[in-house]
């Protein structure tokens, strides 16, 4: 999933300080799962903003709405009426959702309430970690299912570097050495021969080096 975290309240307050009617829009997808921008977080932010504004003696009108999916025109359309009654939209989706709202409602300021972080998985309840860098050309088949691009601090395709110690990365005891994980898994799979096959310099075009990326599926286009 795409993970995100709420921006500091002060920054959000600053960004909406000139508006009187604010529409807060959540998303039912990834940001709900990582507890950053679902219906509940929309409620919490609305309540926090309401109190902050009351305290500042400048009460505002806050409207809460959570879409099924904020990165999809079909769902974003249903906001039309609410948007008409708002001076600004505060999006609690990832950057994709923020941009979709901005695209659909051109004359309305759309402000992000979240910082979009990374594509990751839940390690345990309340902890998410980066897993995929979206490089466009997956190598997990030869790295034992552990991504060196997303999970090695130096993005080494032929690791580990000399800073690996006790299974941890030199940058922090909190970070596993991706190449230790890869090696352990290759051993478990009986595929250690894969390790000595050097990985060639990566073509970064599918990773975005070729410009902003798109996928076109002719069978699905209208």
């Amino acid at each position: 999933m795409i993970t995100a975290e709420r921006k500091p309240l002060e920054e959000i307050l600053q960004s909406v300080s000139s508006f009187d009617r604010i529409l807060i829009v959540g998303c039912n997808e990834c940001v709900t799962v990582c507890a950053a921008g679902g219906r509940k977080e929309v409620g919490l932010l609305a309540s926090a903003l309401n109190m902050s504004m009351l305290k500042a003696g400048r009460p505002v009108q806050l409207t809460e709405h959570t879409l099924e999916r904020q990165c999809d025109p079909e769902y974003v359309d249903e906001l039309a009426q609410l948007v008409t009654g708002a001076d600004a939209i505060l999006s609690m989706a990832c950057g994709c959702g923020v941009q979709e709202l901005a695209r659909r409602y051109r004359d309305k300021p759309v402000l992000p309430a979240l910082n979009t972080k990374f594509m990751g998985a839940a390690e345990r309840p309340g902890v998410w970690a980066e897993r995929c860098a979206g490089c466009g050309n997956c190598v997990l088949g030869v790295t034992g299912g552990i991504c060196p691009i997303a999970r090695c601090s130096k993005r080494l395709m032929n690791g580990p570097c000399g800073g690996s110690g006790n299974g941890k990365c030199e940058i922090s005891d909190e970070v596993d050495c991706a190449w230790q994980l890869i090696w352990d898994r290759l051993k478990a799979l009986g595929k250690t021969d894969l390790y000595e096959q050097n990985m060639d310099a990566k073509d970064w075009r599918p990773a975005g080096g070729g410009g902003p990326r798109r996928i076109v599926r002719e069978d699905l286009t209208e």
Partner: peptide, 8 residues
């Protein structure tokens, strides 16, 4: 923590 941010 949230109350702290709000100023309550």
């Amino acid at each position: 923590r949230l109350l702290e941010e709000i100023g309550v």
